[in-house]
Structure formats: C-alpha cells, structure tokens
Design a binder for these strands. Structure first.
Lengths: 336, 336
DNA sequence: CTCCATCGTTCAATCGATTGACTGCTGAAG
DNA sequence: CTTCAGCAGTCAATCGATTGAACGATGGAG
C-alpha cells in the first residue's frame, strides 16, 4: 500500500504563516497560556485552511500518550443484544469526544488479546471486554491497565460492570407465578459463562425463596439448536413443566421451534419467557414474552467507570434499572 | 485517566542487554541485514522477556507510517446482515496479521466521517465504508486516501464492491415464476440507498425480461414497520398480487406480520420471498424463504481489494457467487 | 535614563522506535 | 608487514507534534 506522503505537516503550516511550529500547535490546541496577536492567529488559521492541514494523530499520541480512542470487544456481532450495547457506548463516547472501535472475539480466536495488545501498545486509552478472555493470555495482574469487563467477572480482575441477572430471573419467575404457574423449568446457558451461571443461580434462589422447587434444569447452551433440544427434553419428561424460563433469546427461539415440532402449543400447554428482549421477538410465533435488560445503561455506565477510575481501583457495578417484563403472547395461565 | 508510565522502552532493553537500541530493534524485526552473534541475540531476547517489553505501536507507526490496522464502518450493528460481513472481514484480516476495528454510523451521526478522520490522521491504513457518508464531508477528491465503499456507490468515488443485486432479485422472481406466479409485487427499500435502487431496478428488469408487468411496487423503507405498512397497502389493492419480493429481511418480517394482521395466510394466499438470509428467518411464522447473498465473499473481496490497490486505482467489483434460494415455507404455488 | 514586567513568540528537548551510514576489529590474502 | 573484506554492532537523523523555558522588544514606573 502506497501512502500519500505529501500530506502537510505542522512545519508547512508554520512556514506558510511565518511563525514557529509551536505557535501553530498552541493555536490549534487553544492553549490558554498563549498570548498572541489576533492577526497572527488569523494568519495561522488561514494557512491551516489553505493547506487543508490535518494534525497527525500518531505523532500527537506519541507525545501526549493519549489517543482519545477506546476499544470494545464483544463475543459476536451476530447477537443483537450486543448491538444495542455497542450503540449505547458509541453514543456515550460521542458525548465525551471519544471514538469507540469495536471488535468481536469468539473464544479462542485471540482477538480479545489483540485488543489488549492495542491497549498495551498505547493505541487506545482504555478497553471494555465483554468476550471471554483466555486467563493465560491476560496481562500479568502486576501490569495494571485501564480495562474492565462487561457482563462477566474474570478471576483476579475486580473491575467489571454486570447486569442484575438474579433480579431479572426473579422478575420472570414472578411473572409466571402471578399467572398461576408452579411447575417451572429453566433452560440454562453454558456453565462456562459467568452470565449463564448468574442466571441459573438466580433461578434457584428465586424459586426457593418462593417455596417452589425447580421442575427441571437443562442446558440450552445459549444457541437456537441447544434451545430446541432442551425443549424436547423437557417435553419428554414425566413431570412436564407448565412454564419455562429461558436464559437467552436465541435458546428461546429454539425452544419455540422445539415445542411446535413436538406439536405442543405455546402458551396453551407451556409458557415460555426469555431473558433479554429483541426487536424481532415479536415476529416469532407466538410473539415472545421477555425480560428487557438495561442494555444502554450498562454500556454507558461501563464507559463512564472506565474513564473515571484508575486501573488500581476496583469497579464492581451492578446495573438493575430498568429491568422489566415485555409481555407478549408466549406466556399465559397454565391449563387446569 | 492516569497512564502507567513505567512501561519499559527499547532503551531499557538495550541497557539491560548491554547493546545499542538499534540492535534491539533489528533483532525484534528480524532484520536480515543484521549480523549478530547468537549470544548477543540471546541476551537481547532475555532482556525483552525479563522486562516484559512490548514495543510501543504509536512510536513505531510514527516512524513507519503504517499501523497494520484497518477500519470498517457499517450502518448499524443491529442488522445481522452486517454482522456476518464484519466477521468475515475480521477473519480475512487475521490471515494477513491485520487488525480490524469497526464502528457504526447512522446517517447524520458523523461517525463515518470520524473514521475517515482516523484514516487522514494516519491511525489506520485503510477503511471500508458501508454506511452512508455525507457527500459534503468527504475528503476532497484530490486527496486520494485508501478507502473504498461496500454495497454502495458514492458519486465521484469509483472504488466500491457490490453485491450482484439484480441477479439476486432475478433469482427470486424465477423462483416465484417457477411456482406459477405471474402477479408479482415488490416491497422496495428507501430510494436514498443505492442497494435499494439496485434491487428495484433489478426487479423491473427481471420482470420485463420475463414478459411480466410488476403488479405493484411500494416502499417498505427497509424496516419492520415499513414492511408491515407496505403489505397492508398491497392487500388493500384491487389487483392483489399472489407473491411479493421484499427488498430486505426486516421488511419481510413486517410483511408477514401485516399479512397475519389482515387475516391473509402466507403462503396459501400470498407468497413472500426476501433478499438476504438470516439465521433467525426460520423462526418466523411461516419460516421465510430468502435469497442468500455472498456476505463473506463480499467482505473478503473488499479487504483484499483495499490492500492490493492504490487510492488512485478504480475498484468496481460485483460479487455474484454464490447467490442462492433458501426455500422455506413462505412461498408456494398460487391459489388457482 | 534605567530597570523591570509583560507581551508575543521562538527554542529545543522530548515521546519511542526505525534505518541508512558508518566504525572498530579480526583474520586472511598478497 | 600492509591491505582489504567481512563481521558485529554503533551513531545519529528522522517521523510530527507538544510544551516548559527562554528571549527580544515594548512600554510604563521610578
């Protein structure tokens, strides 16, 4: 790739305006300590405009050791949940005149570690990590870098922002209990993921604190296929549940398919509710009842925490407002 | 934000190894012109390891004027179509030891222009733009920068990679004609978008070359609501179509909802086919028949073109392989 | 008439790595 | 004994912007 090397530098501007490079720099950065004649400032600005001068951000970053850019790593662009969070963080970044750059990192892809590399190399000022990171590839804890994790706790790194998953699951259970359900099952996510474990634990707690025993707990591995398989298992059981709390939307979509394939009507024979809402959820058949999580709030809070803390400080925020039931047509009172 | 200033530099490594900084640089970059004793190289490597030295990418970039990082701007993370393309480009970038950073830019957000700023500022080596860019904010054509656009042509910028939309639409029409349809309508996208215009033009061409006249053409504005509204209009017409080609999946989801709301059965009374496939399309009711587009191929080709051309060269690629019908349950022969 | 403060700028070191040119040394050829 | 070729590194300029310190000119106070 051939670079256009004729881009003007600050020296060119200075020469054209007949001043020192320092003046150009100070004018452009609106340095308050600079005393300057209006005429000179105007000459500088004119030279800048005429040459179409654009400061070289690399050089500036080398000097200032800041880039005004933050990174974000999510597990997968295909999951619309993350889309909403990314967008919220981008908007928050806009407000602070920062730029957000995003990447995805399937487990084992090493991309999360590449972004940590950007951070170590000084090419971004901070990093938000929502993707699984190989513990072995983490920077040594001694090296405190400005990053924190989203929606997951990483051993040895007490800097994270989480959803209040237990509260969300409790809300789902309440919704079902209010409809009259008592035989409630859970389709969980993979127990390698912190969020899935939190939701599972939340389900158990919510049930026991309401003096109910879980009808069944099966894994849906957070995927559509996994959810379909899980629903099949539940329907094959002798004590079939009358309602299911599904740990995420992809699994729930699969669960609906599984029920349909088995000729079981939702919600007449079994109710389904999922954690996380999705714009397309109302296009499912039946439209899916969900628990909407505070996606934008999580994103905003994460960026703010990252900006306002040093790497030495702990960040252990839990976002619980607003969490609400989006009641659609996949939940109903149980058959009597 | 407080930066960890005690990160070791090349000078530290050089001091520890008892050599010149130049040696460290050459060892690390495997400079073939460097003659060096094995013992010295080992000392350098040992010093690097012991200090945990990590080269400062900013400084390197300042010197070399390259960053090994490319940018990508998409219109919206929430659209799963882009998710697939982003992922493909990330993988292609991996193969070339490059990093891809992505951002989204709703029209008018100015984010696309920010990424062009990254390019001008030398913080990325190239840029792929899939989002609408305000023509007024484009760098002057005189300033040839290494960027190209995806899935859209921008006036005055003959560097783009497109889907073969006419071929896709023709395939959809063929599918319907083969089923026996003749009264075919089109739910188009917003005519501000190049892709929507290409699909519309493709529809007209495909119909006329098969000696059919479009039953109707209405705008669905690429949104779920727009698609629902459009379907309502079509069903209200005196000459109701027996099949509809919908320009994207979001509109198609809306169209299905619209038909259901009007009590019209899909596909018994009206067939629906959409451009672009989606993993969740089989969760719709009925599962949606689609035309799968070569998403990954477009992404890969775009990155390769960007890497292998200078900003002065034109790039006008059209990706037409593989485009295929994914037949699900939303299309069927017309009622007789 | 001298001294000092202020104004409006300039000087030059610095950030950390890269790279073309150069040097001191050893050993072998002549 | 000289000379020259390689070896093993070293020197120092450079990328482009930032920033604390310094500097000459001007004007006012004493």
């Amino acid at each position: 790739m051939i670079r256009n090397s004729k881009r003007p530098t600050m020296a060119d501007v200075a020469a054209k305006a007949g001043v020192d490079r320092a003046v150009v720099s100070r004018v452009l950065n609106e340095d308050a300590t600079l005393k300057i004649r209006e005429a000179t400032r105007a000459r500088v600005m004119a030279a800048v405009a005429e040459l179409g001068y654009q400061p070289n951000a690399i050089a500036r970053s080398l000097r200032t050791a800041r880039t005004s850019t933050f990174g974000l790593v999510i597990p997968d662009f295909a999951n619309p949940i993350w889309a909403k969070i990314v967008t919220a963080i981008e908007e928050e970044a806009d407000h602070h005149d920062l730029l957000l750059v995003t990447g995805s990192a399937r487990p084992g892809s090493g991309r999360a570690e590449q972004f940590l590399g950007l951070l170590q190399a000084g090419r971004i000022d901070g990093l938000l990590v929502a993707a699984p990171v190989a513990a072995t590839l983490l920077p040594p804890p001694a090296e405190r870098l400005p990053w924190l994790s989203l929606n997951q706790r990483i051993p040895g790194h007490d800097r994270y922002v989480l959803f209040d998953d237990p509260a969300a699951v409790a809300l789902a259970v309440d919704h079902l209990v209010a409809l009259g359900h008592r035989d409630i099952a859970h389709i969980a996510g993979p127990d390698t993921l912190d969020s899935a474990r939190r939701r599972l634990a939340g389900f158990k707690d919510a049930m026991s604190s309401r003096r109910l025993t879980p009808c069944a707990i099966v894994s849906g591995s957070y995927t559509t296929d996994g959810g379909e398989q899980a629903m099949r298992e539940l329907l094959a059981q002798p004590n079939r549940p009358s309602a299911v709390v599904v740990a995420n939307v992809a699994s729930a979509a699969g669960a609906l398919n599984g029920a349909r394939a088995a000729g079981v009507q939702v919600p007449r024979e079994i109710s389904v509710i999922a954690i996380h809402d999705l714009p397309l959820a109302h296009c499912f058949e039946p439209p899916l009842t969900t628990v909407r999580m505070p996606l934008a709030e999580l994103g905003r809070e994460a960026l703010r925490s990252l900006m306002n803390t040093t790497p030495e400080q702990d960040v252990t925020a839990v976002i619980s407002e607003p969490i609400e039931i989006i009641a659609r047509a996949s939940t109903a009172p149980p058959r009597t």
